[in-house]
């Protein structure tokens, strides 16, 4: 794309610079809008991109996101990609088509529903979705009690079809007991899982399951 020329008019350039750095008052906004109507090839974003690039050049240190905020962002991001909307939480479950889209259109997505394997987990609902082609999947979980990440974390296990060996699917947290969407991609290749299971583990997880399955999702092969 050929970048449009900037105007020669200092007043317009100043408005573009002001818009890029501190925003415009309504009257100035109207003036710039009117100019753009008369000059539709104006690259209105040109100085905003310059300001953004300068911002990156000045950025020396970046503070890590607060963990609670990161969880919120991740959850909102998953919901947005799934087409479930963002903002207020709701309990719609992604459709098969949405899960397929989520897994980048992989044609081999399989799904299974969670069922309780321990007393106290009867209210857990949701499903696990998996694509062999992508070596990635998605957990949709509702009703799993919130955990204290400093004491215990939930750990996903993927039961390999051939060996029956549980493969570590990673640890995750349930912040509030609400619905969570958790994508996962095991570090070890998995071929056609037989089931998924969740345990409670020490923070960071364990190499082999040390506690009972809390819930299990068995795939129909």
């Amino acid at each position: 794309m050929t970048p449009a020329r900037l105007p020669d008019d200092d007043r317009i350039l100043q408005l573009l610079a002001d818009e890029a750095t501190e925003g415009l008052a309504p009257a100035d906004q109207a003036e710039l809008d009117d100019y753009q109507r008369r000059q539709p090839d104006l690259d209105r974003d040109a100085l905003q991109r310059a300001a953004a690039a300068a911002t990156l050049a000045f950025s020396r240190m970046r503070s890590p996101l607060p963990p609670t905020l990161e969880r919120r962002l991740t959850h909102e991001g998953y919901r947005a990609v799934l087409g479930l909307g963002t903002g207020a939480p709701d309990h719609r479950t992604p459709s098969a088509a949405q899960v397929s889209r989520l897994l980048a259109g992989a044609p081999d997505v399989v799904r299974a529903t969670w069922r309780a394997a321990q007393p106290g987990c009867e209210r857990v609902a949701g499903e696990a979705a998996w694509s062999d082609a992508r070596q990635a999947g998605l957990l949709v979980l509702r009703g799993l009690p919130a955990n204290d990440p400093h004491r215990r974390q939930y750990q996903l296990w993927i039961i390999d079809q051939r060996s029956g060996t549980p493969v570590d699917g990673g640890v995750f947290d349930i912040p509030s007991g609400d619905e969570v969407l958790i994508p996962f991609a095991p570090r070890v290749p998995v071929r056609t899982p037989r089931a998924f299971a969740i345990t409670l583990a020490p923070p960071g997880g364990v190499a082999a399951p040390g506690g009972p399955w809390l819930v299990v999702a068995t795939l129909n092969q």
């Binding site: 990156l56 890590p64 996101l65 962002l73 991001g77 990609v81 989520l102 994508p183």
Partner: peptide, 24 residues
Amino acid sequence: RIAAGDLAAVQECIDRYGGLVWSL
């Protein structure tokens, strides 16, 4: 990738740009 529905890209995007946006 996010536009194509790749969920894994969501976390990668947050990992890559979260600190930048938060600092700003």
